[in-house]
Amino acid sequence: KEMRNAYWEIALLPNLNNQQKRAFIRSLYDDPSQSANLLAEAKKLNDAQA
């Protein structure tokens, strides 16, 4: 469930391009235990690109 939530949050971040989203989501599938960390990194990048 945590992975699914992280997937959708990443997919809906407005300032990431599709390539960036795909990279984060690929990492999510590679290591679901890192969901919270990956989401935090994606949000950080999203904010930096705002």
Rank of each mutant, 00 (worst) to 15 (best):
N5A: 10
Y29N: 08
R4N: 08
R26V: 10
L16T: 00
L45M: 10
Q49I: 14
A23Q: 12
K44H: 09
A48Q: 13
S27Q: 09
L39W: 04
R26Q: 11
M3W: 15
K21N: 01
N5I: 09
A50L: 11
K44I: 09
S33F: 08
S27Y: 10
L39N: 01
N5E: 15
I10R: 00
Y29K: 07
R26H: 10
E9N: 12
P14L: 06
L12E: 07
K44A: 04
L16W: 00
A6R: 05
A11G: 03
D31M: 11
E9C: 05
K1V: 10
L45E: 03
Q19Y: 15
D30Y: 10
N17V: 03
D47M: 10
N15M: 07
P14Q: 09
A40G: 09
S33H: 09
Q20T: 06
N15W: 12
S33I: 03
E41N: 09
Y7V: 05
L12H: 15
I25A: 03
N46L: 00
K43D: 02
A42I: 02
P14H: 06
L28E: 00
A50M: 13
W8H: 09
Q49W: 07
A42Y: 02
R4Q: 13
E2Y: 03
I25D: 01
A23W: 12
R26S: 07
L16H: 00
S33V: 08
I10N: 00
R22N: 12
Q19R: 08
Q34K: 10
L39Q: 03
F24M: 04
D47V: 14
R4D: 13
A42Q: 00
L13F: 04
A23M: 14
Q34C: 06
Y7H: 07
M3P: 03
Q19T: 12
F24K: 01
A40R: 13
A23P: 01
P14E: 08
D47R: 11
E9K: 10
K44W: 11
E2K: 05
I25L: 08
K1R: 04
L39D: 00
N15L: 06
A36G: 11
D30A: 14
N37K: 14
D30T: 13
Q49Y: 13
P32D: 03
N17A: 06
S35M: 07
A23F: 08
A42T: 01
D47S: 14
Q20Y: 02
K21P: 00
A50H: 12
A6L: 09
D30P: 02
L28F: 03
A48Y: 13
K1W: 05
K1G: 07
L13P: 00
Q49P: 04
A50E: 14
I10Y: 00
P32M: 07
L38G: 01
P32W: 08
A36S: 14
L16M: 02
S33L: 09
D31L: 05
A42D: 00
L12G: 10
Q20M: 04
A6T: 12
K44E: 08
D30V: 14
E41G: 03
N18T: 05
A42V: 02
E41I: 12
